[in-house]
Structure formats: C-alpha cells, structure tokens
Simulated assay, not measured.
Amino acid sequence: MRVLHWIPATPDDAVPLAALFRRAEAHAPVGLDQRAEDAGRRLASLGPDLARHTLVGVADDGAVAAYAEAADMGARTAT
C-alpha cells in the first residue's frame, strides 16, 4: 500500500504538479494545468494563504502523488 503524507503546497511544487496533472489527464481529461508555468500560475492565484488551502500528497519516495485545493466558490447567504 502506498502511504501519502499531506504537506502544504509551495510554488516549488509547480513542476511535479504539472507532471501529476499530465498523468491524470491521460485517464480522465478534465483540463488540468499540464505545463509547469500554468501550474505555477494556479498556485500563485490561490492567494497569500496557499499553505492553508492547498496540499500535496507526497509518497514515501518523495514523489508528489496527489493534490488537494480548497476553492472559494462564493459567499452563501442565509434565506
């Protein structure tokens, strides 16, 4: 079994994230950022609290194997 350790994402994760997204796109095309520049822009657009809202799952060998991002989908109002 592969065990992942979840750590905060950093801008340095752009290259391994792009590689992860390319592997995912090969199985289920959903429009993920497949170039390091695009993945870097994605990380930069997540604001100053990147470490709080974005995680990478790192395998025991150090490879980025998963990605999790909390996105602000807009404010909800009570009715």
Rank of each mutant, 00 (worst) to 15 (best):
W6A: 11
Q34V: 14
D61G: 04
R2M: 12
A59Q: 00
T54Y: 11
P8H: 02
A19H: 07
D61C: 01
A59V: 02
P16V: 02
D61S: 08
V3N: 06
L17H: 01
D38I: 06
L50E: 00
T79G: 14
A75Y: 06
V15A: 15
D12R: 12
E37L: 07
D60K: 07
R42F: 09
R42C: 05
G31T: 00
A39F: 07
A51V: 06
P29T: 13
R42L: 11
M1D: 11
H53R: 13
G57V: 04
A75D: 10
R23H: 05
L55A: 11
Q34K: 06
A39M: 09
S45M: 09
P11L: 12
L20D: 01
P48C: 09
V64H: 04
R22K: 10
P48Q: 15
A18E: 07
G62F: 04
A51Y: 03
R22A: 11
P29D: 12
V58I: 05
D49H: 15
V64M: 03
A70S: 13
T79H: 10
R42G: 00
S45Q: 09
V56C: 02
E25Q: 06
P48S: 14
H27S: 08
A51P: 07
G62P: 03
A71F: 14
A68S: 14
R76G: 08
G57C: 05
L50R: 05
A9L: 02
T10A: 14
A63G: 11
P48D: 15
R76P: 01
V30S: 12
H27M: 08
M73I: 15
D38F: 10
E25L: 02
V64P: 05
Q34C: 14
E37M: 03
R2P: 15
A63V: 15
I7E: 14
P29G: 09
D60L: 01
G31Y: 01
R41Y: 00
V56R: 05
L46M: 13
T77M: 09
G74D: 03
G40I: 05
R52S: 13
A9S: 09
P16F: 05
D60G: 15
A68K: 11
G47T: 07
A68E: 09
L50V: 02
A24I: 12
H27K: 09
T79L: 14
V58F: 01
D38R: 14
R76I: 13
D12Y: 01
V64W: 00
A65F: 05
Y67C: 08
A63E: 13
M1R: 12
E69N: 13
